[in-house]
Design a protein around this nucleic acid. Sequence first.
DNA 1: CTGCGGCCTCCCGTTACGTGAGGGTCAACC
DNA 2: GGTTGACCCTCACGTAACGGGAGGCCGCAG
Lengths: 252, 252
Amino acid sequence: MGYSVGQAARFAGITVRSLHHYDAIGLLRPSERSAAGYRRYSDPDLDRLQQVLFYRELGFSLEEIAVILDDPGVDPVTHLRRQHELLRRRIGRLEAMAAAVERAMEARKMGISLTPQERFEVFGDVDPEQYAEEAEERWGGSDAFEQSRRRTARYTKDDWRAVTAEAGEVLEAFAAAFAEGAPADGERAMGVAERHRAHITRWFYDCTYEIHKGLGEMYVADPRFAANYERVAEGLSRYVRDAIHANAAPHA
Amino acid sequence: MGYSVGQAARFAGITVRSLHHYDAIGLLRPSERSAAGYRRYSDPDLDRLQQVLFYRELGFSLEEIAVILDDPGVDPVTHLRRQHELLRRRIGRLEAMAAAVERAMEARKMGISLTPQERFEVFGDVDPEQYAEEAEERWGGSDAFEQSRRRTARYTKDDWRAVTAEAGEVLEAFAAAFAEGAPADGERAMGVAERHRAHITRWFYDCTYEIHKGLGEMYVADPRFAANYERVAEGLSRYVRDAIHANAAPHA
DNA sequence: CTGCGGCCTCCCGTTACGTGAGGGTCAACC
DNA sequence: GGTTGACCCTCACGTAACGGGAGGCCGCAG
């Protein structure tokens, strides 16, 4: 009994060279050798091979696989449960990607273009606290704040430089439009408002038109923000708020 | 405007080295360089990067990705549709694997052990004629035949030697049990019958107990098969059929 | 006894990066 | 205004997981 390398390879749909490799690194040594030195794979060997291929399919390195399979505290049922869990996660991720693609098609049909950051979210961190899955529901309103905190935590000085530089550009654009008498509900001011919204979305959180309007109000109401605009020109904070509202109106 | 390598890398969740590499091989060259030679990635660059990562995630080589993305006959919508289709297929495959794991758990609970070949089926050929997806339904009854044809097509002479050798062993075991007066519905004969069933499953197709009983009948009814057994011992074909039936009975 | 298919062991090549080495850049802080 | 620290650059060698021969033994079929 036992199978040759070629037979084992054909069964598993892999190459003979791979089996040689697994033998060489000690991941899967055939339990026997013929008198002539031929590799002979037993049924348990094939079982192990199947496990190897399973974990390989899910992106584990051969070294990791060796550790997993040679872990002594491992009854086969636990293995199966773990595999099932891994598969479910991977499927979940791919479904999220599929949903993102669908959204992208939807957006394209409607003529909206996504910011690159929105698109990268799909691949994003699998969220370290993935175990508290229901956390999403609990956030509700403060979702934006959390998102902002998570993102900005990874920013470097260079990033912050870019943030402030970009914010400065937007501010200048608002000031210029204001100074030149462009109406707050005109195309120019609305364009700048949209740039502002993109700026927030890019660097902090997913800024919807609804949220954007809230921000506009805050820029007028909260003296700390208002001062930032009023310092440049008197009446600019209200101008900015109005531009934001005008820009958001068609998307209500 | 534009992002540095580090920023782009952080957005995409990859390393700076990867971006360097993509630049070096021409897969993704930043559209600009600063005076000091710093890479500057524009938003379209990030869009392309997202595409690259998408296809990479699905296992394409960087060279293939370059071909795909630089194909001029490629409106973005077609791209999205293709991506969606690729995702759906991959999800389907993973779901099949998950189902196989579930079956394995089920089998283990019931104390049945799968043949290695059954387990490898999961990974199996994505079926060259995957485009005719409804083919599965059409097969119906001749499923076993098709499976056998598909498998044996890849067998080498060595495989066939193993097949005939193993078949010979089973035949001898039947003959020995028969010669020594072991009852056809006894443990010994049933054990050999089970080995026979495993032999079929291993080398030809998924031989259920139902199918196995059909084979037993055929060994008696079809003179071509009967001769094979009768040549060894008179009455052996009927003995084999009875052993097969006895072995199948508990699994009805 | 010779061919042919399969097996063996080196051993170099390839892909997609990892990992420094050695050295500029640039806003910031003293 | 020099230094510090974070970031950037270009070589250039290292690594993982094999691919693909070269050169040679094994075993059966003709």
